[in-house]
Amino acid sequence: MNKTNKEPSRKLLAVFAHPDDETFICGGTLAKYASEGVDITLVSATRGEMGRRMGNPVYINRETMPAIREQELRRACDSLGIQQLIFFDIRDKTVEFVDEIQLTNRIADLINEVNPDVILTFHELLGGHPDHCAIGKATTAAAEITGRRESLYFISYGDTMEHPEGFGYTRQDVVKVDVFAHLEAKLAAFRDHRCQTEIDEWVWQNDQEALARFGRYEYFLKGSEAARVQEQEQEQDDLFVATCVAQH
């Protein structure tokens, strides 16, 4: 009998607030790791039912929005290669008001179940939207109580962390992921979120023009003080390598 030794797959858990967070902010990175065989689980705390964009021309309403945004997110997951999707079914724009301990424990249970090598979420102060900050705070606390703080990374907007000094961080605190080879998947996911992107004309231009609007890199802030103090001789460009360095 022939026996093969199969390496355990790497796992990534992304805990976000709304449908489209995964695509608009770090879709290239998720597509990159999915293409490398990483097992990705995505949490959307809400179904985005309070979003103000309803298609262009409008084709949905407040009642139909949750189901439509779920469908669009599932299509985006297919485009990006995300295998597992979980909804917490918290009402949109109320994440900051749910019981923080219960939310933290729910995420901690999921961390223990998934056993991820990398955890992505929002920074609790730099997330921008209150839902983003609240889910980021709870995920950070969950990573702490499960002993996974060194696996934690905060997503960031655009190229803001190309100059992290303005936020009180250094380049050593940032992982810069090259997503150039995966921008087509990111664009497909943008288009999957139709009700949110139809108003943005550039998304629907020809592929070459639309792809030119994306940056080549996506940036992640290390969520662990231990990870940030690691001495690195070169810029880090892989979340999984950075995690291994921090844990050793």
Rank of each mutant, 00 (worst) to 15 (best):
E150H: 13
I111F: 01
I111L: 08
T104H: 01
Q84K: 15
P130T: 13
V174F: 01
S79I: 00
I107L: 11
D178N: 13
E72K: 07
M161K: 04
T146F: 09
H129P: 12
N112V: 07
I145C: 14
F87T: 01
G128R: 08
R69V: 05
F97A: 14
L183V: 03
R148C: 14
F97C: 12
I119E: 09
I135K: 06
F88I: 04
L125F: 05
Y157S: 07
D78N: 11
N115W: 00
I90E: 00
K93V: 06
T104G: 09
G136Y: 03
I107D: 04
L80Y: 01
A138L: 05
A76G: 05
I135Y: 07
I145D: 03
R75F: 01
V114A: 12
P130I: 01
A142G: 14
V95S: 04
M161H: 01
R75A: 09
G147K: 10
Y153K: 11
Q84L: 00
T160L: 12
F87A: 03
P116Q: 06
Q71R: 13
T170Y: 02
T121L: 07
E184G: 08
D173H: 13
P116Y: 02
A108K: 09
T170R: 07
I107R: 04
H132R: 12
T140C: 13
P130M: 04
C133N: 15
D117R: 03
A134D: 08
T146E: 10
I107T: 11
A181G: 05
V95A: 12
R69P: 01
E113Y: 07
R69S: 12
I155A: 09
D109M: 06
Q84F: 01
C133G: 04
L73F: 02
D131A: 08
E96T: 11
V174A: 14
S156C: 07
L80D: 02
Y169Q: 11
T94E: 04
Y153H: 04
D131M: 03
D173G: 15
E162W: 03
L110S: 06
M161Y: 10
I86F: 05
I119H: 10
K176H: 11
I86T: 08
R148T: 14
E96L: 09
L125D: 14
I101L: 09
R149T: 15
